[in-house]
Design a protein around this nucleic acid. Structure first.
Lengths: 173, 173
DNA sequence: CCATCTGATTGCATATTGAAACTAGTTGAG
DNA sequence: CTCAACTAGTTTCAATATGCAATCAGATGG
């Protein structure tokens, strides 16, 4: 699982590592959905990734140091996937990707509220979020996975998302 | 050439449009290298894209409204490829991608100086650069392609790149 | 008039992707 | 203890994408 390194350009290298259909989507689910198990990533994903692709991407992301894998003490067969410092520092990039997508692509209201808040919050919010992520992924990945350690920023983003979704459900049905 | 839309999430949609090995690399060459012809994109690229892939990607990017194609009056068979407002607004994303790549991937000194300057310059520089790009891609694509209309920001970035490269050449040879 | 340059296209081998079925082991309820 | 449900994947196979080399037809330049 190695980069080919067609050139040392930062943009090219980033594309060699993250330039595919699924890598950033998986990191997004771990980061913003706090999905830490294979099953959660597989079935609770909006986009319906195939299990073989998910397995391959997780392996690949591990080999690049973007996620780590840890045995879940509560279930000997469960693994906990966590972000690393490298993937936590993708937060500003996600903010820009979300901002651009909201502006130029046909996003849905509920799924874009988090991107909107992240854009509005700017660097101060990103820093706060990254600090949270360090706690639930690096300092205490087990507590972060089982919910005993939480991210206030994530809680706010999730609450906003659920609120919009509830409003949409009420309007629709 | 349509998106499948597996979900309305801004990050997912952006990956459906730009999440592949080559799209952003091609836009990078048009944006930072001011390569406006097929041949330039094909042969002056650091990474050596295949001609069929380049043709397919240009067509795809056009269908998404990220580039436009224009007949070159100086040569009836030449086409000029230009950025659109949507791709010009990728500048902040490129800045973040470059910054992340510089921090976590084995970039080369010469090819990362532009990313460094773009990161240091921050939003004021990005805005200035985007204003330049609007002039040489939207307002006067022909003048922008043949060099009669120039981007001061691009000139600074290119000068810095050439300076670093000259220094490296001197040290090596 | 002919070599060269233009933006591509075509063929073909290989690599990647995607969906569904399947594996092998674990856990929890009865 | 037993069995259904759940765990993280792997296997299989068809479809698609990629990469490389060769090719093409229409300008252009000498």
């Amino acid at each position: 699982m190695d980069i080919e390194i067609r050139s040392g350009c930062p943009i090219n290298l980033t594309m060699e590592v993250l330039g595919d259909r699924w890598s950033l989507v998986i990191i997004r689910d771990i980061m913003f959905g706090n999905r830490r198990h294979f099953r959660e990533l597989l079935t609770q994903s909006e986009e319906g990734i195939a299990s073989n692709i998910l397995a391959a991407r997780l392996k690949r992301l591990m080999s690049y140091g973007l996620i780590t894998k840890l045995d879940d003490p509560s279930h000997s067969q469960k693994a906990i996937y966590s972000l690393t410092e490298a993937s936590i520092q993708l937060v500003p990039m996600f903010a820009m990707i979300g901002a651009w997508g909201r502006r130029f692509l046909p996003v849905s209201e509920d799924l874009s509220i988090r991107a909107e808040l992240l854009e509005e919050g700017g660097p101060p919010l990103w820093d706060e979020f990254m600090a949270d992520l360090r706690r639930i992924h690096i300092e205490d990945p087990i507590g972060g996975a089982n919910g005993t350690v939480k991210s206030p920023v994530l809680a706010r983003l999730t609450a906003a998302f659920l609120e919009v979704r509830a409003k949409m459900d009420a309007a629709a049905g």
